[in-house]
Amino acid sequence: MTKQDLQIKTHDGVAKAGLFRSAKASPFKAGVILYQDAFGPRPALDGMAERLAGEGYTVLVPDLFYRNAPYGPFDAKTAFTVEETKVALMALVTGTTQAMTISDSSAFLDALASDGVTGPIGTVGYCMGGARALNAAAIYPDRIKAAASFHGGNLASDAEDSPHRKAASIKARVYVGMAGVDRSFPAEQSTRLAEALRTAEVDHAIENYVGMAHGWCVPDHSVYDEAGAERHWKRLTDLFAETLV
């Protein structure tokens, strides 16, 4: 397994990113963009990217907070329980808009292409990254063939940049794994998202992980659940195996 540190030029500056590839990955095989959760790129996400790369994909993990670098690092288990780090985190999250990440995603796709990835692209996002994975699929439908969100928040909110509003532009297959109880993606948003995707005739599945809390997939979260995480891996790898061909 190899990790290459990249400097990706965007419209607003330079974003750091990690590029992960296994020995068995073909340079012409599919690529994956992994959109971070609120705590930013770190060893836990590197490990998840390595696992995906082990399936034969080239995986890019960009720093969505690069406009405000340097920052952190943050401890995912305690960052939201300490007022100082909570305030810093929320400033990063709210200061990194969907529009910014949509613009950046063009550069992320170009970075994969420059590395020789000419096959289809999948996106996956966790927490704040979930909406970004879906919005990227809507804005770049000719490149992105699969998009997954796990414990993603505000996927069908009243905001103008809510992903459900762009459902008609999505050509990718979509999978949404929602936490059993999640204030950032309540039942009414799940219903609204399902209706938008169904009306737009998007191939999709929305699955409720009963008993799982927001953040259950990521190993350094306080609510990490091994069985639930393995279930998420099965769904994600099946999605990509069926679509990124």
Rank of each mutant, 00 (worst) to 15 (best):
T58L: 08
Y209I: 10
A200W: 01
G18M: 02
D161S: 14
V124N: 00
I8K: 10
L19E: 08
F108L: 10
A213T: 05
Y175W: 04
P73E: 10
A205G: 11
G119V: 11
T243R: 11
A99V: 07
T118P: 00
I102Q: 12
V87A: 15
S26C: 08
G95Q: 12
L60G: 01
H214K: 08
A25G: 05
D5P: 02
A241G: 08
F65Q: 03
H232S: 11
V59Q: 06
I121T: 13
E207L: 12
Q189I: 03
D110N: 14
K16N: 15
A137I: 08
A69N: 08
S190E: 13
G116P: 07
G211M: 12
T101R: 05
A107W: 01
C217W: 04
V223A: 10
P62N: 12
A200S: 15
R198G: 11
L109F: 03
L244Y: 01
V223Q: 02
F20P: 03
M48F: 03
A30S: 15
V245R: 13
K234F: 02
R51S: 08
A49M: 04
D203P: 02
M128R: 09
G119D: 04
R42H: 13
Q7M: 12
P62W: 04
I8V: 11
N208Q: 10
M100F: 03
L92N: 06
H214T: 08
A196H: 03
E201I: 05
L52P: 03
A88L: 09
A79D: 12
Q36S: 07
V210Y: 05
H164A: 08
S103Q: 12
M212P: 00
S222M: 12
S114Q: 15
F240Q: 07
A227I: 11
I121D: 01
D238P: 04
H221N: 15
M1A: 11
R235T: 13
